[in-house]
């Protein structure tokens, strides 16, 4: 799946809007669409553009700042953090597990066996590495 190029929310979804924003920002940062040190749209602008409550945007930005993904500079706005934070091991394990669950679901739907899935993962590893490193640069 290609990550969204911009932060988008759908208010009709059951997922809280702030969560959608958070998710969206994380994906943009992870995909490299938002570069480290790069600016994010202001709370005001994002709220106006998406027609959502600025408090919601502020809440999402705050959580991301606390998580270290973003940093707020007084008087200047919100920016992507220079160094994306190291994910705590528990967090890393959880996110990995999420990704793995998706792969497993996909494999089962396709009718593949576990060993087929494992070998697919192994073969895809170099591609993933190069992509992640390239995005970071």
């Amino acid at each position: 799946m290609a990550p969204p190029a911009r932060i988008r929310v759908n208010p009709a979804l059951p997922t809280p809007i702030w969560s959608q924003i958070e998710e969206s920002v994380r994906h943009l940062v992870a995909s490299g669409a938002l570069r480290p040190g790069g600016p994010l749209p202001s709370v005001r602008d994002l709220a106006r553009e998406q027609q959502i409550n600025p408090n919601t945007v502020a809440k999402a930005y705050q959580r991301l700042a606390e998580a270290g993904v973003l940093e707020a500079r007084r008087g200047e706005g919100t920016f992507v953090a220079e160094r994306p934070p190291a994910m705590p091991p528990a967090e890393r394990a959880r996110v990995l597990r999420e990704g793995a669950t998706r792969l497993a679901t996909l494999a089962v739907n396709l009718g593949a066996t576990q060993s087929e899935a494992v070998s697919a993962l192994q073969s895809a590893w170099p591609d993933g590495e190069s992509r992640a490193k390239g995005g970071r640069r």
Partner: peptide, 14 residues
């Protein structure tokens, strides 16, 4: 409609 809401939001944000 969008214009109205954007205006309100802007004021809200400010």
């Amino acid at each position: 409609r969008d214009a109205v809401f954007q205006e309100v939001i802007g004021d809200l944000a400010d």
